[in-house]
């Protein structure tokens, strides 16, 4: 399995006196993984470590069995769209992508074909022959993305990849990530847009102050937080009556009625018991239209795990 995972073992990185990340141990399986954390929490440091742009002071990193200190082999299977906004002054968008491909050993013809394909995927063919230095922020974001995906990598690392993309390209890009994740590739991205991460990700890594706070599937991470009651939103016609029935249950700690009296928020310490109670209420003839978990998203996890850090 090691050959298919990204593994951090006790990795620490300091910038002089400043902590980057501290004793990070991770095993990232294939699929879409989001790094979530406040600014300066260490997301970019983790990505830079993963791609060999910086080296750990302690610990070791393995990307699908390869070391980031061996860029010759590792970067062959890895694409990294960094947050660094600058591109070489000489480069047009097309040159920028093609040149990188030439270093993979592709013939010029093949490199150009792949470059066009990647630029097409990010809808940048019209501006391909313009200098990157003259691109808008969104276009630069897209050209970096094109460069990262052009060689069809197994590991795609993307620092805030959806910033500056218009809704159409954004939707297409997310679809591409999903497709790649489903193919068993690693798609690792960082984002501040939590709802986005929630929708895209197979798993999340929550990071704060250079330390991993939680990792895994969002639901799994949520389950690990036993000290926080689970939250459910119930949509129903008879909200007041259902609220009073739920109050009688020991595991329910709080019930809040919606202003429209057509729904309520329930906090419970035992999800299984809550589920049984709901069944009983429904069988008793109360009309329950829907039950939605209210805290199985990264927003809630963030709130629980990092608190005021956001």
């Amino acid at each position: 399995m090691n050959g298919h995972e990204i593994i951090f073992e006790e990795v620490s990185k300091f910038y002089g006196e400043v902590l980057g990340v501290n004793r990070v141990s991770l095993r990232v399986p294939p699929g879409i993984t989001s790094l979530v954390g406040p600014n300066g929490s260490g997301k970019t440091t983790l990505m830079n470590l993963m791609c060999g742009l910086i080296h750990p002071d302690r610990g070791s990193i393995s990307v699908r069995g390869l070391s980031p200190r061996d860029p010759e082999r590792m970067m062959r299977i890895t694409g990294y769209a960094t947050q660094f906004d600058a591109a070489p002054r000489w480069a047009t968008g097309f040159d920028f992508v093609t040149t990188a491909l030439l270093l993979f050993g592709y013939s010029r013809k093949e490199a150009e074909r792949k470059a066009w394909k990647a630029l097409e995927l990010v809808s940048l063919t019209d501006a391909a022959m313009r200098k990157v230095a003259g691109y808008s922020k969104g276009m630069r974001q897209r050209v970096r993305l094109a460069q990262a995906i052009a060689h069809d990598p197994q590991v795609l690392v993307l620092d805030e990849p959806l910033n500056g993309l218009d809704p159409l390209v954004r939707a297409e890009t997310i679809a591409l990530f999903r497709e790649w994740g489903a193919q068993g590739r690693h798609v690792i991205l960082s984002s501040h847009v939590l709802q986005e991460v929630d929708v895209i990700s197979d798993q999340v890594i929550l990071i704060a102050n250079g330390m991993i706070v939680a990792e895994g599937e969002i639901r799994g991470v949520r389950d690990e937080i036993s000290e926080h009651p689970s939250q459910y939103i119930i949509r129903c016609r008879d909200a007041s009556r259902i609220a009073s029935l739920l109050f009688d249950e020991d595991h329910v700690t709080e019930v809040r009625l919606n202003d429209d009296r057509l729904g309520l928020l329930v906090l419970t310490k035992n999800r299984e018991e809550f589920s049984k109670a709901l069944s009983r209420i429904a069988l008793a003839g109360h009309d329950i239209e829907g039950v939605i978990p209210a805290d199985e998203n990264v927003d809630a996890l963030y709130e629980y795990l990092i608190g005021g850090g956001r």
């Binding site: 791609c51 860029p71 970067m75 990294y80 906004d85 600058a86 070489p88 002054r89």
Partner: peptide, 20 residues
């Protein structure tokens, strides 16, 4: 110069040994 222009990572992300 590339450090100052913030473009050196372009080369470091290529599948090439640093010596190359």
């Amino acid at each position: 110069g590339e450090m100052l222009d913030k473009t050196l990572h372009f080369w470091f992300l290529a599948p090439a040994r640093r010596e190359v």
